[in-house]
């Protein structure tokens, strides 16, 4: 589902962020991406979401080479990849419902269907009763779950999460990871960047480790 072939990413101001990255993730795999901050985890995710292009090498998602994807097809690609951010990236002046509905609104889904699917997604993250609230009224963990609901409402085959539990206490973190595991069982491919090493070792999923832009460890599938 996701394949990196000798990928390099160099920033003019920071130098090499990723060097010679090679790996492949199968459909329905749940993979952790670990490493210290600054190791290149976010950069790697950004390449998959096509927020950036590699300096060298190729990134393939669902058989498509992102390097040759024309600009006008970027929106189509992003609809296939749900992204969850550490800082949630919610719209503060919109309700939870509207935030979660955004991916469907931009796709032109019928309003009736939007209501149905948004509530289904909110139900999955346990926030059905908060749909009329604004993000500011929610706790950090709840906001993170809104971000997750937004990422999965379009039912993308790929979910990327960048430090989804960065600001959460261990119990909440565990709940979120359990939620991710449920998606894995229904065939979603997940790539989760985290530096929560204890949780990673507890949960026993394939883990890729980055160190200063290089892939230093790949545990392989469990």
């Amino acid at each position: 589902m996701i394949r990196f072939q000798n990928v390099f990413k160099r920033y003019p101001e920071r130098g090499e962020a990723l060097s010679a990255i090679d790996f492949e993730i199968q459909t329905g795999e749940m993979v952790f991406l670990t490493g210290h901050s600054g190791a290149g985890k976010s950069t790697l995710l950004r390449l998959i979401g096509l927020l950036e292009r590699p300096s060298r090498g190729q990134v393939l998602v669902n058989g498509r080479n992102l390097g040759t994807l024309p600009r006008r097809e970027i929106p189509q690609h992003r609809r296939q990849v749900g992204m969850i951010f550490q800082d949630h990236r919610l719209l503060p002046d919109r309700t939870i419902f509207d935030n979660v509905a955004l991916p469907l609104v931009v796709t032109g889904v019928h309003p009736k269907e939007i209501g149905r699917r948004v509530r289904a997604a909110l139900d999955q993250v346990g926030l059905l009763k908060r749909e009329r609230a604004t993000p500011m009224a929610l706790s950090g963990g709840e906001q993170q779950r809104v971000g997750i609901a937004r990422a999965l409402v379009g039912r993308p085959p790929v979910l990327l999460a960048d430090e989804p539990t960065g600001n959460l206490d261990p119990d909440l973190s565990r709940e979120i990871f359990e939620l991710f595991e449920r998606f894995k069982y229904v065939g979603v491919t997940l790539l989760i960047a985290t530096h929560d090493f204890s949780l990673v070792s507890d949960l026993r999923h394939r883990t890729l480790t980055l160190d200063e832009g290089r892939l230093t460890r790949d545990t392989g599938a469990w």
């Binding site: 189509q76 990236r89 931009v106």
Partner: peptide, 14 residues
Amino acid sequence: EIEIMELVGATAAF
């Protein structure tokens, strides 16, 4: 808002 809409796959026209 525009940035987030781009992230979730809004087209330029939208």
